[in-house]
Design a protein around this nucleic acid. Structure first.
Lengths: 338, 338
DNA sequence: TTGAAAGCGATACCAA
DNA sequence: TTGGTATCGCTTTCAA
């Protein structure tokens, strides 16, 4: 199989003995081209199997028709769903999506951002790694005039559009639900301390307790140390307390599911002894035993909305203002909190 | 915030009153550049916050340092894990990954392929949509000399490297396991008919039955019609048979989980009345009630290997031969088949 | 060791 | 309606 050289405008021009400019115009359906010429050109293009070179086009137009996406982890259902939303919306608008995962590493995030920002993409959608608590890399991208939108794992230090769910409200509702179930020692398995989602969910939890006149006990709030197995450790700590919790609100479904595994191993009855509720409505949560109550986040929609925003910014950079869009969550009650 | 113009080699050259060529050489650490000049250039580059324009570089080199990936669906755990493997390996070798989903549509797959192949990527990794049974679009890409590797959802009609698991063997082992459990009416919830994975798994199922002297009954083999809810229908059909099955081998875990839901609704005891086993070792399968037996596929590794292969082809197109790499599966026995 | 100039492929301005 | 030419930013050959 001989590697076929790429067909260019020049090839078509030479075959038809006309100029490259005319070929270019004709293929873009410029009205200032004779109908006959146009027809001949498009016929020849088809015959030669011509496909335009997007790289050359990008260089000239300074537009790549590509969006960059950086997420902590692709295998997390939440991010997979968001990306699916991003990808569908981008495709609809004629954009490609370059996806990178930071693997929860700040250093990787910085590197990826640097390479993506070098003319490869017209805009960036980012969900921050759990390690990220310095935002110079984002600031740099902004300074270079590249549109940027944060989603889910955002930070408040950077003035860009952000798409999030109402984490505070979701956490509040989840905690309130456990209270109304009659639980009195409600623990919280918290997320990485400096992430805004962790803070917001923790605050929702705290405020719900306070609204119902319950104490916020520090020993019932546990932060994870490692990402993968964090909740295992936290759950064990909670269950080992002299006075263990009778309910747990976990920062996300993976954490909740880990907690459930620990409790099952220890023979603790869910929800009779300990009720539990997660966050994110991971597909897994509908299949656990017992099925897991959770707070549903519209992941796919977040991806779509974030994409719509970045495209708006790309197409009309002048009249686009940074705004934070907060979507609502929904309590999904299942058997783990009955 | 004023949009900063992109810094180019020319800017550095002008500031230092030297030529663009020298700047280009220096930044690539060409030995034929005076050490002093080099130092001055790299200092200036840093000072101006210079980042090379990859699009211009790509145009010249005819290399984009990007790989294209097309999968049917990003939210499927199997594909998410494969992509994670692709992405990690690609990043390690300095490549970006452009990810697209065909949403199981042949038409979309063709379109995506067309746009990606236009100079955007140096190679393509594809897992075919369930609708795809014409391979002209792949042939075209091959003819244009763009390296191509198929993984998981492959076809045998195109002479390229393929990375798959031993679907036949996995299915055989799964079916054999059900037989050894003492089950006598073992059904198969099959995948889309023309996909090679469906065929191979079906054959493994058939041969296992035959090896043990059991009949292959057509009524116990059910193909899904729609993708999303296919297994629901198939399961109901099976359970409504005059003589329903006492075991089910499902083409993948999502299908198996759907089947379990149907059986639970109908009050059928798993595994006492009907044992079930899936395929792919989806993370969900460890959390279902009962936990789901399955056949584990090394999704992440498949992604890594596929990427290694495409990179080999890109770097040494001459001595790369098309080969099919078959990875082994592993039986994961849980409570749904005890 | 350095510079000038051509070229990658497409677009757009200015002339004709 | 068409063609010539400069340009996008970088690389590379040829000459100096």
């Amino acid at each position: 199989m001989t590697k076929q050289r790429q067909i260019t405008l020049k090839d078509i021009a030479q075959k038809l003995d006309i100029s490259v400019s005319t070929v270019s115009r004709a293929l873009r359906n410029d009205s200032a081209v004779n109908a006959h010429t146009k027809k001949a050109i498009s016929r020849m293009a088809k015959q030669l199997n011509f496909e335009i070179n997007q790289v050359a086009q990008s260089l000239h137009k300074k537009k790549t028709k590509a969006l960059g996406v950086i997420v902590p982890n692709l295998t997390n259902n939440y991010f997979a769903a968001s990306i699916s939303g991003i990808q569908d919306m981008a495709a609809k608008k004629g954009y490609n999506v370059i996806i990178c995962q930071s693997n929860e590493s700040y250093e990787k995030e910085v590197n990826i951002l640097r390479t993506l920002a070098n003319g490869r993409v017209d805009g960036l959608l980012i969900s921050l790694s759990r390690e990220t608590n310095n935002y110079d890399h984002l600031q740099k991208v902004l300074y270079r005039g590249i549109p940027l939108v944060l989603f889910d794992r955002i930070c408040n230090e950077i003035p860009v559009s952000k798409i999030v769910v109402n984490d505070y409200d979701g956490a509040f509702k989840a905690t309130e639900h456990l209270i109304q179930l009659g639980r009195s020692r409600i623990a919280h398995i918290a997320g990485p301390e400096h992430l805004s989602i962790s803070k917001d969910r923790l605050n929702g939890y705290r405020d719900a307790l306070q609204k119902y006149g319950m104490n916020v006990e520090q020993e019932l709030i546990r932060y994870s140390s490692s990402y993968e197995q964090g909740a295992v450790e936290q759950t064990n700590e909670l269950l080992n307390l002299p006075s263990p919790p009778d309910a747990i609100f976990a920062v996300d479904d993976p954490a909740a599911i880990q907690a459930m595994m620990v409790m099952k191993e220890r023979g603790i009855k869910i929800p009779e002894e300990v009720a539990i509720i997660g966050f994110s409505n991971d597909p897994n949560s509908a299949h656990t035993q017992p099925t897991l109550s959770t707070v549903a986040q519209p992941a796919y929609e977040i991806g779509q909305i974030a994409t719509k925003h970045i495209l708006d910014q790309i197409h009309q950079p002048e009249n686009s203002i940074s705004q934070t869009i907060t979507l609502n969550t929904e309590l999904v009650l299942r058997n783990s909190s009955k």
